[in-house]
Amino acid sequence: MQNRRDFLKNAGALALGGLALPHLSQAAELVGLSAPKPIGIQLFTLFRPMNEDPKGTLEKVAAVGYKEIESAFSTRGGYYGYKPKEFKALVEDLGMTWRAHHAGGAPFRRPSPPPGAAPAGASTPGPAAPAGAPAAGANAPAGTNQQRPMNMPPMLNLRDNYQQLVDEAAEAGLSYLVCASTPVATLDEINNSIEVFQKTGEAAKKAGIGFAYHNHATEFDPVESAGGKTPYELILSQTDKDLVKMELDLAWATKAGKDPVELFKQQQGRFPLWHVKDIRQDLKTITEVGTGVVDFKRIFAAADIAGMKYFFVEQDMAPQPIENITTSYQNLRKVVV
């Protein structure tokens, strides 16, 4: 299983339980109880089905009970082959709300080829897959060396296209534009990212939307050229807290040995978005919400301290997408009543 950041690096650059929920919600309102909190989903969880059949996949997502959508990269280009307003209409027609979109911060440098590999410019199976896309051959049967060329659409990133991405997010009526991942291995990369975040945050504020940064585990690793400081602490301390918010990925923070609640306390109100993701005891395997080690009940109890507004279930390229997101939804519903 590869996560989004792995793709960025390698690329170089229904459920029956959900059907009763409307009735339960109406009954709760009749007796004066508040409706359940809307549960969102990051569509990277359903990467392949969203690229194969966006509308049909969204219909299944809605049938499970999900109400909020965060979009990601699509091999169809644009927003799963749609323009911003078209995708917004599709989501809303299914009774959901499109809240946020993920975009890359800056292209990752292409990894150096191993000794004996073909030199740069040599014949390859096809163009490198951009951010969020599976590498060529990712769909090949196990045990084969089959490689499939992928004709990828142009990839926008915040370093080069922040204004266009902000404008499109505003056109779609989104609440947030989010940086999905960006190079932070050196102090220069961190500083460049901070500059991009500040510019994007300023543009987003002018457009009436928010901007946030989504972490992986590597942001919590000390960087030698930064004097041993971590990218995460530098981003937090050197960006305007009103312009650059954080989307905390609960599983990656847990993998890095960080307590999400303590992070919330250190930067109160700066975490309006969460990725509700679980990880197994090995701290390597991403799994369905409620089947790993993340203490969601304790974390959700600190939602006010975090300033949380929206949260999205994510299981990076889930192996059995609809089954997996159904399990996550049903388990999470027990926490966010």
Results as ranks from 00 to 15, higher is better:
L156N: 06
R280P: 01
P272D: 09
A170Y: 03
Y213F: 15
P321Q: 09
P114L: 14
K67R: 07
V166H: 04
I322R: 01
G228C: 11
A13Q: 14
P231M: 06
A118E: 11
H102C: 08
H102K: 04
A100W: 03
V166Q: 05
L46P: 00
P222V: 10
V166D: 10
I209K: 05
A138R: 09
P153K: 06
A28K: 15
E224Q: 14
T239W: 08
F108P: 05
H216P: 11
N161W: 07
H102T: 01
V276E: 00
L33F: 12
F73E: 11
Q147I: 08
G126F: 13
R76N: 15
Y232A: 13
L94S: 13
K37Y: 02
G227Y: 07
G77N: 07
D221T: 15
E68D: 08
L33N: 04
A303W: 04
P114E: 09
G201R: 07
Y80K: 07
W98N: 07
T326V: 05
F47W: 03
F300K: 02
K206L: 10
L236A: 14
I299V: 14
V289N: 03
N10K: 15
L21K: 09
A172H: 11
P49D: 01
K206Q: 12
A185K: 11
K9C: 11
K88I: 03
Q163V: 12
N51T: 04
G40V: 00
L43G: 00
K334G: 02
E247G: 02
